[in-house]
Amino acid sequence: MSSNVAAQDLSPQEIMAVFLARDLKDREHVMVGVAMPIVEAAVRLAHLLHGPNMELIFFGTRMNVADRYTLPLPAFAWDNRVVRWAESFSDTGHRFEDVKHWHKRVFFIGGVQVDPHGNTNLIGVGPDYATLRFRGPGSVGTPTLSTHVGRYYIVLNSHSPRILVERCDYMSTYGWGGGGADARKKLGLPGGGPKYCVTPLCVMDFDEEDKHMRLHSVHPGVTPEEVQAQTGFALTMPDQLPTTPTPTPEELHALRTRVDPEGRLRRM
C-alpha cells in the first residue's frame, strides 16, 4: 500500500467512511437504513475495493453492484428507483421473518442520544413523553435489528455532549444496557451488539469487561481532551491512543470518483 493521504486534504466524514469500510469484510450482508450518507459511502467503498461478494441491503432491496463503476443512489429514502440495482426485494413485513439468519448481517444506527453503554435513542428528548422537547423520527427497525444482527456500528453526524449523554431520555435500542459483557445475554438478546461508535472527532469502542465506551482512536488533529470536552460522560481512556488511519490514495480516489463524486462527505 502506498502512503496515506495527508489529513488536511480530508474531511472528517471521509475519514469515518474509510474507517468503516475497512472494518467490513467480504461476504458479509450489510444493511443500510435511511438518511445515513457516511454509512452509504462506507459500504459502497468496501464493496468496490474488497467486497465483491458482499450483499448490500438498501431499504429492502438486496443488491450486488461491485461490477458497476459508480452507483448513484437516490437522496430520498423511499424513492423506488433504488430497486433498479436489486437482485431481490423484501417488503417490511417479510424482511423480519428471517431473523434467524441475521448473525451474518451488519447494521448501522444513528441516534439523537447515545449513552456510555451504546444504548441509543431515536424517540425524542425531554422529560415528558407526551410533550417532548424534541420529537425524534421514531425507531424505524432499529430495536429488532440491534437485537439480532451479528454486529452493528453507531455512526453519528456530529459529536457533542447533547448527543453523547450520561443517560438517554428514552432507549430505542439496547446496546450494552447498564454495562457488563453479559448484559445482552442476560436479557436473551442474540445479536453481537454495538462494536464501534464513530463520530467526526474519533472512534470509540466498548471495554471488554464493563462495556463502557472507550476512546479507540482520534481523527488527525483531534486531541483526547477535545473529545472528552465534547462528550457528556467520562470516556474510558485506553493505554495507547492511536490516530485514526487516513485513506490511501487508492481509497480516496475510489471514494471521490466512484462513491461520492458529488462531494457530499466534504460538505457535511
Binding site: F96, V99, N121, I123, Y129, S139, G141, P143, T144, L145, S146, T147, H148, C168, Y170, M171, S172, T173, Y174, G177, L187, G188, L189
Partner: peptide, 13 residues
Amino acid sequence: PWRGGVGTSLPEV
C-alpha cells in the same frame, strides 16, 4: 410475541 424492543423504553412509552 416479539423480541425486538426487549430492554428498550418501548414498553414504557
